[in-house]
């Protein structure tokens, strides 16, 4: 079992998968990341991060029915697992905690 720590890209990918629910596959995830995060990302990098998350058991995947628009190839659809959800929650909590601890004066300049 790999560590449960989430990298920045991993976290984004996980959130995007959750966002896209039921239609979370390579190209859709790539486009969503590009649109929401305003950054460009290659399809290979998307696949790589999805694979990494799967290895960590944060994602599960299944093949869709064959489609016509992609040369007849099926989509590999991803879904966040329970432990994926737990990792996201932990990460969010950690951040909230840190945010709430910032004294007001720290950002006033």
């Amino acid at each position: 079992m790999k560590g449960t720590h989430l990298g920045e890209l991993e976290e984004i990918a996980l959130l995007v998968v959750a966002n896209l629910f039921d239609n979370a596959y390579g190209v859709a995830i790539k486009l969503e990341i590009e649109e929401k995060c305003n950054r460009s990302i290659t399809i290979s990098t998307v696949h790589n991060v999805l694979q990494r998350l799967s290895e960590k058991n944060f994602l599960e995947s299944r093949y869709s029915e064959p489609t016509n628009e992609r040369g007849g190839k099926r989509k590999l659809l991803f879904r966040v697992t329970k432990s994926g959800q737990a990792a996201l929650t932990t990460s969010k909590k950690l951040r909230d905690n840190l945010w709430s601890g910032i004294p007001k004066i720290a950002f006033e300049q």
Binding site: Y25, I43, G71
Partner: peptide
């Protein structure tokens, strides 16, 4: 993974 990769590449190509 190959099928999904090929599919994604094809989609982007289109």
């Amino acid at each position: 993974l190959w099928e999904s990769i090929e599919g994604d590449l094809h989609e982007l190509f289109l």
